[in-house]
Design a protein around this nucleic acid. Structure first.
Lengths: 371, 371
DNA sequence: ATTATTTGTTAAACCGATATAGTAAGATAT
DNA sequence: ATATCTTACTATATCGGTTTAACAAATAAT
């Protein structure tokens, strides 16, 4: 009946109220720093709280206040270095302001994206950060599900025809920059090893690639694009297929991400193709290991950690402020980091820094010396 | 007053009950598949649920049932490949059985470990998986905090004097195996580049290193141990310090983890020290990139993903079953994967596979071909 | 036919907080 | 002295479910 004689029951607000000789309302007010409490009772209540080591039940709080002080983060792959940095950025931001982060991931399967979102909405997160899969068929019904629930949302890539808060990177521009750099080195036959087609980032990078080719009057043909994927094994397989075949070979390969690029390099090395003398390679994301792989890998540096923080910040601006819905798109810079994996088309070293200013080209120092 | 004319209020169990012409108890019973409901009403209620697109409020559920269907996972570093795999294992297990994973991380700071745990306990997680920092001063007070709250716990490394469920790896044995392998290659001056001292894994690996040295009658001196850390930069700095100094140099370096080992390799390469001719290097964890770095890195393969699954499984066995508390320690295998970073002490290639059976020594194939 | 048991359903207490309306006591104004 | 306003606090409804005890109707046992 009463919960005094129960074994080791949790301390509740009632226990505190009883011991402090006040009502639970008063305790609640103290807990939430309401002004209308005298210093004397405030201190008394706080003493009791400390004495009982009382921890308010966040679930009960959530139910009555309709705020869970938690947010959901749905990525595409939990163990992908790019998302990993984003996760850290998001986590650090929210743990700094007393929010909890609930983990979600589609692991590249649309149905699992949907179920992840549903699970998080059931847990009544106060907001959602989502890196959406978006195929050409584009079943974006779960997005409307989110807006139905009026949960603040920040997307980690643009979605066509959806007005939402977005934190994204300059994919097209950076891709164009990378391919232009290769062209500047004298390359004419440049391949794009593409990511999955449910990725907007992939589509934008493809556009950047195409634009660079066209702007320089180079032939853009579909054959220049090879379907790879997101994994090391995808790049490996794609390169093995192309370079062990008898077809025409590119002298440079621009890859959807660093994992694909590293897979490509592994394959080429196995086939006796030299990097960068025979083929130049550029990746995307600039993960930590770019400077440490067989041939230091040129890549596009993406500020993933900062993206996470930015997305968190943008989401936080929405939470609580029910009025004046913000619709903002933050686009972060992404710039080429040239390293040894690129050379001139005739095989000579790339030499100095290309026209535009870039981050330090020194793969070794950068990768070895910094955390 | 009533919530029918409010704008876009959420559908509640009462709405369902009203429309189906039953009590909310009945709806609740249907929701939880209680047997005592006639097929007719069950179907009718389910129809209404579907029609209204009703999603039960998990917060309300949690409050009354005292089960949140969520667990907390506290790692040491969100963006470390080892923890990343664990996270995926844990996530996949729990999302498979309708549980949500709340993210926590100490980011290597004890106070943040504590606050992470507190935050998760406030959210009333049904269980906790923790990779604990444990310094020599050993302030393990938060562990008692967990047991006070009677929250099922699984640790991701053993804690001295604490009886708990543990999923761990065979650190000492694997370390001993690695060092013995180096000794078998003729090395006599072998250094251990250690991890942080708040890591039990580090202490166990150190013990394994020491045991191997002693068993082979080699001098074990404190000078054989260099403090490195967990980051690439830590290994880089430690190696730079040792190999640019004038002191005695080891011919082999066994590292706390792969990041340190890769940092070491970067430093040595900068200093013109050749791997493996001059110095052999072994890492720990066998992260994906081991086969793709400058010189393919020998490492200890750790089944981190499986650890995550195992920890999740062990935790799940505890949840709900209040009686008969389980206390189990699951220790997973960890075995040496030799690659090109190791050679005989005289500089000649290591050649075949060492006595004991190991995973494929073919770094290139393994790393390039597999995901 | 009467009692006992099973089956299907519901009323109401409860989970542990928040929040609103209300109240008693003391301060200020009239 | 009475009315008005603060100030400090409390009673109570509420959030949206679960769960227990109660109950009526149908079935089985005596």
């Amino acid at each position: 009946m009463n919960n005094q004689n129960r074994f080791k029951e949790k301390v509740t607000i009632d226990d505190v109220a009883r011991l402090a000789g006040v009502s639970k309302s008063t305790v609640s007010f103290v807990l939430n720093n309401r002004p209308s409490i005298s210093a004397a009772t405030r201190d008394r209540v706080r003493d009791v709280i400390r004495k009982l080591n009382y921890q308010p039940n966040q679930i009960a709080r959530s139910l009555s206040s309709r705020q869970t002080r938690s947010i959901g983060l749905v990525v595409k792959q939990i163990d992908n270095p790019y998302f990993t940095k984003i996760m850290r950025g998001v986590f650090e931001y929210f743990s700094g302001c007393g929010y909890t982060v609930l983990l979600g991931s589609s692991e590249l399967q649309p149905d699992r994206e949907k179920s992840s979102i549903e699970a998080l909405l059931r847990q009544r997160v106060d907001g959602l950060i989502l890196s959406p899969l978006q195929g050409s068929d584009a079943d974006m019904s779960h997005l409307s599900l989110i807006s139905q629930n009026q949960v603040p949302l920040v997307l980690l890539e643009k979605v066509a025809n959806v007005a939402a808060n977005v934190v994204d990177i300059r994919n097209e521009g950076a891709a164009c920059e990378a391919v232009s750099y290769l062209i500047g080195l004298g390359h004419r036959k440049i391949a794009y090893y593409s990511g999955p087609d449910y990725s907007m980032h992939n589509r934008e990078r493809l556009t950047g690639y195409r634009r660079a080719m066209m702007e320089h009057g180079l032939p853009f043909s579909a054959s220049g694009v090879r379907q790879a994927g997101v994994y090391l094994a995808d790049g490996y397989a794609a390169a093995k297929a192309q370079f062990s075949g008898s077809g025409e070979r590119p002298t440079a390969v621009f890859c959807f991400n660093d994992l694909v690029a590293i897979g490509v390099m592994n394959a080429l090395m196995e086939l006796g193709v030299h990097i960068p003398e025979d083929v130049s390679v550029i990746g995307f994301d600039d993960i930590e290991f770019c400077g440490s792989v067989r041939v230091p890998l040129s890549s596009i540096r993406v500020p993933a950690y900062e993206m996470g923080k930015a997305a968190a910040d943008l989401l936080m601006q929405q939470i609580g402020k029910t009025d004046s819905v913000i619709r903002k798109t933050v686009e972060l810079e992404a710039t080429l980091v040239p390293r040894a994996s690129c050379a001139r088309a005739d095989g000579r070293p790339a030499g100095g820094i290309p026209k535009k200013k870039h981050a330090s080209p020194d793969g070794l120092r950068t990768a070895g010396g910094m955390a």
